[in-house]
Amino acid sequence: MQALYGQLLVGLINGSFYALLSLGLAVIFGLVNVVNFAHGALYMTGAFLAWLGLSELGIGYWPALLLSPLAVGVLGMVVERTMLRRLYQLDNLYGLLFTFGLTLIIEGLFHHAYGNSGSSYPVPEALQGGTNLGFMYLPRYRAWVVLVSLVVCFGSWFVIERTRLGAYLRAGTENPRLLQAFGVNVPLMMTLTFGFGVALAGFAGVMAAPIYQVSPSMGSSLIIVVFAVVVVGGMGSILGSILTGLGLGLVEGLTKYFYPPAAATVIFAIMAVVLLLRPAGLFGRET
């Protein structure tokens, strides 16, 4: 039973990562209407920038937590302004293909420059060590990850669903022309939203750097799971992706306890069932 508590807690930790990443995807899909396949690569970029900052410039973890997502966000906005924007009037599929190609290029560049084994990012000093909870040893850094993800996720949800700015954003997706007529600069808003979405990926990257090996392929192993989370939650549903991320993390944790070899597939099995019964996802709206 003790082991089960441990696995549930680990599931919650992983779930908060899923939530953080799928939130960015949901924001981009829900508000900009792009299926951003480059999310994993940008998450990796965030982690790499944190590592580069530390090893080349001596920038520590705390400033990196702000600077790295900022840099990823700016990169995203440049991509959106110069390239992605041209695809808005076309089918979703073009955006998906474009961002997929972008992923290959970004990963290839990092691979060429830094090799495949990657590098190790130390846990910041203030968060080293851990506490023995009786049923498991909880590293302090993991507790921090859960806390921060929850704050960021629900903060973003609040801004988008409950404030005037959020209302503009949602109106922009519903009817951009009408919103523009009211004097809102819709294209700029789209750029900023896309920038915010990918900055979330960069942020998750910095959060992940001390836990996982920082390597060019770290994003590609996660992105598929995150997409499954978004599909189960309902494409574009902010709250759906947060809750589904946490929930599927827990389910995965349980699977690792009861039948470990199925841990990698259980999420996709759930996705298949959800698509059969509720094609719009658990929290999605039928259109």
């Binding site: 696995q7 680990v10 996982y212 770290m218 944790g253 306890y257 470990p260 841990a263």
Partner: peptide, 20 residues
């Protein structure tokens, strides 16, 4: 022993079992 799928990024639950 515990089996994990190839290309796993999070090993914490397997490590907990090893610890236990």
């Amino acid at each position: 022993s515990v089996r994990h799928p190839q290309s796993t990024s999070d090993f914490s639950s397997y490590l907990l079992q090893a610890q236990a």
